[in-house]
Write a protein that binds this DNA or RNA. Structure first.
Lengths: 206, 206
DNA sequence: CCTACCGATCGGTAGG
DNA sequence: CCTACCGATCGGTAGG
């Protein structure tokens, strides 16, 4: 008859599941308009329990961002591996560009950026950690892939880090700006290949 | 004996001066943490007067952003004219890049972007108007300048709008991202000239 | 006795 | 123009 292996109170959310629920609340309302009452209610725990696990609202926010950044740390790894393996440099770069756009324009990623950017002034260490984990790490991964392609004679790269930044901003700069401001970017399906053409004009092997 | 030409109550701020003061308050605290009491106090007017001029907090915010976007509408005009007049294309583009960085990384511009981006979800029409006035307009101005240089045989541009976006994001993408996240971008004084070199590899006359 | 957790409420402040 | 005040809700903590 028992549908649960243990009797008594059904447990609410703790640990990573609590952080995921808190993240959803922060993304819905923003930092200031998020209430600890709503986080506790949606996690089905008391506020006392919430405060025992996270000593303050700002500490909960820092934990949410840190958990999020860690989970997305190597999000581009599969796409970078495909780039390194592709014998057609232009095709590989175009597919990477498309993958980057899909990843960075997804609603949850855009909203997380809004949240972190807005709180950068009051909680700079959180924004700094986010930048380091979610951004510098992916730039570094791309730089590594580009350098490998250079050594195999497929690209002509003098400064891999700078080239990785160039590629990233050519691809995502405009669409990300529009998305952050809440505007649906026009489809423009040729955008990735345009960006790749510009990149290869400077870094391609001629 | 009168130190003022008119007697009676010293006037508080109204109109554009009120919007400038309100803007400062919004930039200090963010939208949610800004109180109408503080705006009224700093403008030396009563809350009643404030609500008579702006019917709600969100209406005041919309007026602040609209006023700001209009005032910065043609901020890049002098720099664009210098670009068109410069006989040395590489030097002209590099100086434009430096001017764009100075303009977009100034603290007040960065903080205004943070504010508008954060409220894009709840007040999308404000963010949309900001994007149109502050961004599309400057991109269009740059596109026009690039097209003129193309017609004078100094550049080889197929799509002026796309080229203007490419240039903009190559130059400001990384530094703006760091600034929004509250990180001091490393000086990198060669960044503008690097971006120009990449741009000219594709759009220069060879 | 302990722990995990509850219902209730604190002092202050928000937009209007 | 201003004071006083509203219904509500905030982050955080009390006793048991």
């Amino acid at each position: 008859m028992a549908t649960s292996p243990s009797r008594g109170r059904p447990p609410g959310l703790t640990g990573p599941a609590l952080l995921a629920e808190a993240r959803a609340v922060f993304l819905e309302h923003g930092y200031t308009s998020t209430t600890m009452d709503e986080v506790a209610a949606r996690a089905r725990i008391s506020k006392s329990s919430l405060y025992r696990e996270h000593r303050s609202k700002s500490a909960l926010y820092a934990a949410v961002v840190s958990d999020w950044a860690a989970s997305g740390r190597d999000a581009m790894r599969p796409a970078l591996d495909r780039l390194s393996d592709d014998s057609d440099v232009e095709r590989g770069l175009t597919q990477l560009a498309e993958a980057m756009l899909r990843a960075m324009l997804s609603p949850v990623v855009v909203e997380m950026r809004r949240l972190v950017v807005n709180e950068a002034k009051s909680q700079p260490q959180v924004a700094g950690a986010y930048l380091k984990e979610s951004w510098d790490r992916n730039i570094a991964g791309l730089a590594e892939a580009l350098e490998g392609m250079h050594h195999r004679g497929r690209l002509s790269i003098d400064d891999a880090r700078a080239a990785a930044e160039d590629f990233t901003w050519l691809v995502v700069g405009g669409p990300l700006n529009s998305a952050l401001l809440g505007v649906q970017p026009n489809p423009a399906p040729d955008r990735p290949s345009r960006s790749v053409a510009l990149f290869l004009a400077r870094y391609g092997v001629h």
